[in-house]
Simulated scan of single mutants.
Amino acid sequence: MFNGERFLGAALASVFAQSRVPDEVIVVDDGSTDSSGQTARSHPGVRVIRQENQGLSAARNTGLAAVQSDAVVFLDDDDRMLPENLATGLRLLSAYPQAAFVAGCATPIDAAGTRTSPDKRLGSPGTCSFATLLAGHSFVPPSTVMFRRAAFEATGPFDTALRSGCEDLDIYLRMARVFEVHAHPALIVEYRRHGRNITRNRARLLKASLDLLERNRALVADDPELKAALEAGRRRWIATYGPGLPSEAAGHLKQGHILPAVRAIGAALRYHPQGLWRYLYGKLGRG
């Protein structure tokens, strides 16, 4: 958590509203300069660990090192668990004893907490494996996933060198390479979309996603099916983030943020040039 006071109270309320009471609740304050720490401490039963700002992966690792429970869920400060989140995850981890994690679905909400697409589900592809993750499937937000803590002992902690929004996908891939993983269709999280979401930085996320796939390329070199999955993942991430790059660049320019605008334009030229030309043509046509 970093400067999460705006939504933290609602996030913690959702934890304590679980049908299965959590064994422990740990909040890692990653060097916040607002009143996030005080907000967390105002909830009885919450253990707060404060550290200098080190980024998402380091905060996750701090929490992981402190937790004693056999099963772990990482909840971002702006999202909310639905009441059956923990009960569902624990039941499925028991049903799939070889699984490193089980993962369900989320539905989007706005800053006020209202569901924006009540029938929309973000999550389960029906099956989950190293191949499906390579092909571009992930789990958003991370609180849709319940990990078996022991799996981290085999795969290692979150990679602190990753600071661009792919920290969770990296750990999913690393675990899926060596363990069974399981996806299920239950709706267990409300994913809050607002102006500060990291997913709004399309240029950074696209580069990070493609770089992460490249880190796995050597592992799939001798497997045609996995190589095809990796290429499908490249196409999916480009299709996901590419079309929005021109408008992202325009937004940065309007705010006078030149370097982020240049990065977005560069990413558009490299990965989705047709979208950039279409955007410019539309602007010139209306002008």
Rank of each mutant, 00 (worst) to 15 (best):
M1N: 09
F2P: 00
N3S: 11
F7Q: 06
G9D: 14
A10I: 00
A11K: 08
S14Q: 11
V15T: 05
V15H: 10
A17D: 13
V21R: 15
E24H: 08
V25K: 06
I26K: 01
V27Y: 11
G31N: 12
S32G: 02
T33M: 04
D34F: 08
G37E: 14
A40S: 09
S42M: 02
S42K: 01
G45Q: 08
V48P: 11
R50V: 09
E52S: 14
N53I: 03
G55Q: 05
L56D: 05
A59M: 09
N61V: 02
L64E: 01
A65T: 01
S69E: 15
D76H: 05
M81V: 03
P83D: 03
N85S: 14
T88V: 14
G89R: 05
G89E: 05
A95G: 09
A95D: 13
A100P: 08
V102M: 04
A103E: 02
C105P: 07
T107Q: 15
I109T: 12
A111H: 13
A112R: 14
T114H: 14
R115K: 14
T116E: 11
R121Y: 06
C128P: 00
F130W: 13
G136V: 04
P141R: 01
V145A: 06
A150Q: 12
A151M: 04
F152Y: 05
T155Y: 02
P157K: 06
D159K: 01
L162I: 10
S164R: 12
D170H: 15
D170N: 14
Y172D: 06
M175S: 07
F179E: 10
H184A: 00
H184V: 02
P185M: 03
A186Q: 15
R193A: 09
R196N: 10
N197D: 11
T199Y: 09
R200F: 08
N201V: 05
N201W: 11
R202M: 10
L212K: 05
L213P: 07
E214V: 04
R217L: 08
A218G: 15
V220E: 03
V220M: 05
D223T: 09
D223I: 00
D223H: 03
E225A: 14
K227S: 15
A232R: 12
G233R: 01
Y241Q: 03
P243H: 05
H252R: 12
I258K: 12
V262W: 00
R263W: 00
A264H: 04
I265Y: 10
R270H: 09
H272D: 15
H272C: 09
L284Y: 07
G285L: 10
G285I: 00
G287D: 02
